[in-house]
Simulated assay, not measured.
Amino acid sequence: MRPSLRQKIIDVCDLKMDRKGETVGLSFYAFFANKNDDPDLLMEAATWWIKTHQLDHFEKAKKIKDMVINGK
């Protein structure tokens, strides 16, 4: 995963947890605007989320952040 996507995921997870607490859930769509303006980046996130790690549609933001920080 490219470094800019890793940082974006961490930032969004931090923002969501700051607003709603550490138990907040999110999907990989949370890292993108409501329009598909970067399909390659969206597919990179989707591949990491769905294909590589077989995560559920919604996961805890803390879990996702920890995975990204730990290089998974």
Results as ranks from 00 to 15, higher is better:
Ser4Leu: 04
Gly21Cys: 05
Lys65Cys: 07
Leu42Lys: 13
Ile50Asn: 10
Ser4Cys: 05
Asp18Lys: 15
Pro39Gln: 01
Lys65Tyr: 10
Ile64Gly: 00
Asp40Ser: 09
Arg6Lys: 15
Gly25Gln: 08
Phe28Tyr: 15
Lys20Val: 10
Val68Glu: 03
Ile64Arg: 04
Ile69Glu: 15
Ala30Asp: 05
Arg2Ser: 08
Asn70Cys: 13
Lys63Tyr: 13
Arg19Asn: 12
Met67Ile: 11
Ser4Gln: 10
Trp49Pro: 03
Val12Trp: 03
Ala30Pro: 01
Leu42Pro: 00
Glu22Leu: 12
Asp38Tyr: 15
Asp18Pro: 00
Gln54Trp: 06
Asn36Gly: 00
Asp38Gln: 08
Phe28Ser: 02
Leu26Arg: 06
Lys8Gly: 00
Asn34Ala: 07
Asn34Pro: 00
Phe28Gln: 10
His57Thr: 12
Leu5Val: 03
His57Arg: 12
Lys60His: 04
Ala61Trp: 06
Asn36Trp: 09
Glu59Phe: 02
Ala61Asp: 00
Ile69Leu: 15
Phe28Asn: 06
Leu41Arg: 11
Arg19Ile: 13
Leu15Phe: 09
Phe28Gly: 01
Lys35Trp: 15
Asp11Glu: 14
Gly21Ser: 02
Cys13Pro: 02
Asp37Pro: 00
Ile50Pro: 01
Ser4Met: 08
Lys60Ser: 06
Asp38Lys: 11
Gly25Ala: 09
Gly21Trp: 14
Glu59Trp: 02
Gly21Asn: 08
Ala45Lys: 00
Arg19Trp: 15
Ile9Asp: 00
Ser27Asn: 14
Phe31Leu: 01
Glu22His: 11
Thr47Arg: 08
Arg2Ala: 06
Ala61Phe: 05
Thr23Trp: 10
Asp14Gln: 07
Lys60Val: 10
Lys20Ser: 11
